[in-house]
Amino acid sequence: MTTTPSIAPVRPTRRRRGRAGARAAAVVRHAVLIPIALLWLVPLYVVIINAFKTNGDIVAAPFEIPFDRISLEYLQFALVNPNFNVVGAYGYTALLVVVNIVLLIVIAGPVSYVISRGLNTRHRALLFYFLLGTFIPGQAILIPATTVLRTLGLMNSFPGLVLFQVVAHLPVTIFLFVGYIRSIPRSIDEAAIIDGAGMLRRYWSVIFPLMRPIVATVVILTGMGVWNDFVHPQIILGPFSPKTVTTGIYAAFGLYVNDYTIIFPDLLLAIAPLLIFFVFMQRHIVSGLTTGALKS
């Protein structure tokens, strides 16, 4: 909805039209953006309010808040539900996230330093080697990967899952690290070389402390990726191991598919940590996403 091209050549007229036009344009923008924002927020609203309602109220009036009948009972049950231990799933998933991030940084950091400071063809070949990974669809190699994990005795185990997830995040992480280390002046390395520090020592004590912004990006992207991962824990951990938030909710909804007093509280508990994370970290998530995507 743009204003029709103004033919009026007289300056003052056009400026007045311009101001009125700007206001009209703003009105049009809000007229488009408000319904879209509502379409995005209504599902969230439905999940939140229905987590406190009876099944009858949810089915009869899903968008209403019956103030006299709202109850914490369903949320409380969801916390102790024997079929989906939400608290346990939070803990297990958090552990998975932390171990993933630590291993990823320890493994990806030194190799990124080698690649970014190297001048030879083999360093460029090494970067290319890891970038191949971005074209390999995770689900496509999951079945053969289970064969590899089974051969190594790592199938149905926490270490097996962690190693597979770390490797899945290696390409992006190495790419981001290499790009960042290249922006750190070599003169900083040279000072450390004169002090007699070896290459690994130089990385951890001189370069790594300078990498905080990019490490933060990797922590955010990997943390969200691992927390939300479903297919890898579902298949690598197998049905008898502790549940992550995603595999737990999948298992629970297989049992209670029609009971909204189970579904909505569980959904609220599943998204609550992420929404809190989103509210406080939005700026960092956005910058992590844009550096992650636009650099590649």
Binding site: I107, A108, P110, V111, Y113, V114, I115, G118, L126, Y129, F130, L132, G133, I136, A140, I141, L142, I143, P144, A145, T147, V148, L163, F164, V166, V167, A168, L170, I174, G198, M199, L200, Y203
Partner: peptide, 30 residues
């Protein structure tokens, strides 16, 4: 320097080969 680089690069190269490239090759073979 290349010798010093090797232990730093090895864990990432080996894990990537084992859990990303090997399954990809296996998928093609299978």
């Amino acid at each position: 320097a290349g010798l010093a680089e090797f232990p730093m690069a090895f864990p990432a190269i080996a894990l990537f080969a084992l859990f990303e490239l090997l399954p990809t090759v296996l998928a093609v073979v299978y």
